[in-house]
């Protein structure tokens, strides 16, 4: 591991200023991803600004039924919060389906959103990777990509975003609060994570020095009927092959509204907007769910070894919606 400096500022402003002090400064949350990447030589910060102890570590219910979630809230605490379990089961389920109990206890909400891809080439500094070294090439396209993207990828990168939580937040359309060198702003989800295009080294729309201080999840009453379904070959402690976050609002056998996002399929948590559009106003039947799923998955461009994700996603979308539709 390359030597680095370590600072623990007292508040968000001080953190942002501290991060401006060094050319390769990085924020440190629970460290469950960043420290691994430092050991592997993938991340080589010269300064770690520890933000896991900053005071934005609470969950607050707003008067209108929304939630304000601090960026330093631990994944376990968010999953256990009554307003999450009761009103937003897909978020609680997504959180609990991720990693292990130990990791969730350490991991922060902000760090979870910004965790990096699990593409094996990205994590091995002895190999090329456009995301790690721009222009060095993408060996995954010809090589091992059975668990990489089928949607929105480019000739430069076919990685997936690994977070489960982010998939549920994308379905909710959460807003991310950012404190940056130029002040504060809000970024809606989807919208935080980018597709790779010709700049796969850039995961998100954040600028250098931007600090995530929290999230707003606006009220979505019908999300009390929501689910997160994650597929993986072992029962726990594995990233998704495909996952689905879905909330469904059915009245008199007709879909009034719905929210669907997919994980394990793209460089960003994938909001299934075409699916949602195709489903609104349709009868709540397996036939409609399947047609809607196809509307989304028609966009898919599988690689040599990951075409299985298309029927897998389709089946799991249909099943999840059918279970919610009653």
């Amino acid at each position: 591991m390359r030597p680095f400096a370590y600072r623990r500022p007292a508040d968000a402003r001080a953190a942002v200023e501290a991060a401006l002090d060094a050319p390769r400064a990085m924020y440190l949350g629970g460290g469950t991803n960043l420290v691994d990447l430092m050991r592997l030589g993938v991340a080589e910060p010269d300064l770690l600004v520890d933000v896991a102890g900053l005071p934005y570590d609470t969950i607050r219910e707003t008067g209108d039924g929304g939630l304000e979630i601090g960026g330093a809230v631990r994944n376990s605490d968010l999953a256990a919060h009554p307003a999450v379990r009761r009103d937003r089961p897909m978020l609680a389920q997504a959180l609990l389906s991720a990693a292990s109990g130990q990791i969730r206890n350490a991991a922060t909400v902000a760090g979870n959103l910004l965790q990096r891809t699990r593409c094996a080439y990205f994590q091995d500094v002895s190999k090329p990777c456009n995301k790690r070294i721009p222009g060095s090439g993408c060996p995954a396209i010809e090589g091992d990509h059975y668990n990489l993207a089928i949607l929105g990828h480019s000739a430069h990168c076919v990685a997936t975003h690994p977070s489960d939580m982010a998939v549920a937040l994308t379905a909710f359309g959460a807003a991310v609060h950012v404190e940056g060198p130029g002040g504060r702003r809000e970024i809606g989800m989807p919208g935080l994570h980018r597709l790779p295009g010709d700049r796969p080294e850039v995961d998100t729309v954040l600028d250098p020095g931007d600090l995530i201080t929290g999230l707003t999840v606006r009220p979505l009453p019908f999300a009390a009927r929501s689910r997160y379904r994650k597929v993986r070959e072992r029962a726990s402690f594995a990233f998704a092959l495909v996952s689905v976050a879905a909330a469904l609002d059915v009245e008199d056998g007709t879909v009034r509204d719905c929210r669907v996002a997919l994980g394990g399929v793209a460089h960003a948590p994938w909001r299934a907007e075409r699916l949602e559009e195709a489903l609104r106003g349709r009868p709540a039947t397996e036939g409609s769910y399947a047609e809607a799923a196809d509307a989304e998955l028609d966009l898919a461009e599988p690689l040599r070894d990951n075409a299985y994700k298309i029927p897998l996603a389709r089946k799991v979308i249909v099943r999840t919606l059918a279970e919610l539709g009653g």
């Binding site: 094996a120 090589g143 091992d144 029962a235 726990s236 402690f237 594995a238």
Partner: peptide, 23 residues
């Protein structure tokens, strides 16, 4: 096996999946 580079690619326990308690 990674054909291009010639090594076993999934060389850690996050990628090489031994059964966990839940299995």
């Amino acid at each position: 096996m990674d054909r291009e580079f010639g090594d076993y690619l999934n060389h850690d326990l996050a990628q090489y999946h031994v059964p966990v308690n839940a299995d």
